[in-house]
Design a protein around this nucleic acid. Structure first.
Length: 273
DNA sequence: ACTCGCCTGTCG
DNA sequence: CGACAGGCGAGT
């Protein structure tokens, strides 16, 4: 579900409630996620710790504590929410951290593709998910990253989903950036002229910035919400994602959907080449 | 560089 | 009922 704008939205909504606060109670279920929750780790190493920072790297969130760090990834269906202890638990609540101010942070993940793991502070960079992340599209050199990947003969959509190239882009924003840049998601990365690579870099920055300002993309299923429970309203600005069969906003032609390596691409065949 | 598997939920 | 879903890594 969550890509960079959604994860950053969650980070911002959690930050004031986590940073500077102390974990006074931990409830952790031994559940198999992409990286499973080990309750003993959470109790031994995070209970009693004050959180000093909440950072995002790509689609990962890192809560740094005084003695250890907690690494989260929301996978496809993960959520982190702020709740009062008396409020009922949503199904698939796998981890609850209660803070000294009385509010709980709950990690919920029905499909269990997420990550919630305790790490040594000095071994964060050794974590396989973090070690090979490319630059952040909002802070790093997007054009340079695309140029470096520009020899690839893979379809450009696949390159944009590669987290070692740029960290944080998922299927929605890959499709949207390509729409804005007028590039077919099926085009080989190596066959994009330099000026169009520049346009794509700008489109990536723009779409992620606008989506973040909108508080992320909440589709009709309402799957994504911030930790405060708010949906984002970028869905109304989507040009192609989820719009198969609908008219292209530019040329009036029909948006098509097709499978590419198992995942959908959406594009206007007339506007995107 | 693709395919598949991991899971549950929702929509047509 | 099948198709599909915002991700990712193992295996080939």
């Amino acid at each position: 579900m969550p890509e960079l704008p959604e994860v950053e939205t969650v980070r911002r909504s959690l930050e004031p409630h986590m940073v500077g606060s102390r974990v006074v109670e931990v409830e952790a279920r031994a559940v198999k996620l992409r990286e499973g929750i080990r309750p003993a780790d959470w109790h031994r190493r995070l209970l009693g710790t004050r959180v000093t920072a909440l950072e995002r790297r790509g689609k990962y969130l890192i809560a740094k504590g005084e003695r250890a760090a907690a690494l989260f990834h929301l996978g496809m269906s993960g959520r982190m929410v702020l709740r009062r202890p008396a409020e009922p638990r949503a199904p698939h609540t796998h981890l609850v951290l209660r803070f000294d101010h009385g509010i709980e942070v709950r990690f919920i993940d029905p499909r269990r593709f997420g990550v919630a793991v305790v790490l040594d502070l000095d071994r964060l960079d050794a974590h396989p998910g973090l070690a090979r992340l490319g630059p952040d599209p909002l802070g790093g050199d997007v054009e340079g990253a695309l140029q470096a990947a520009g020899r690839s003969r893979s379809p450009i959509r696949s390159v944009l989903l590669d987290q070692t190239v740029l960290a944080g882009i998922g299927n929605i924003y890959a499709n949207e950036a390509l729409s804005r840049a007028g590039i077919s998601p099926l085009r080989r990365a190596s066959a994009i002229a330099p000026r169009r690579v520049r346009a794509l870099a700008e489109a990536i920055r723009a779409v992620l910035t606008e989506a973040l300002e909108a508080g992320g993309t909440t589709l009709r299923d309402g799957g994504f919400v911030s930790a405060e429970g708010d949906g984002g309203y970028f869905a109304v600005k989507l040009e192609v994602y989820g719009r198969a069969g609908e008219p292209c906003l530019r040329c009036g032609g029909t948006i098509v959907r097709r499978a590419l390596t198992g995942r959908s691409v959406f594009y206007c065949p007339r506007c995107q080449r």
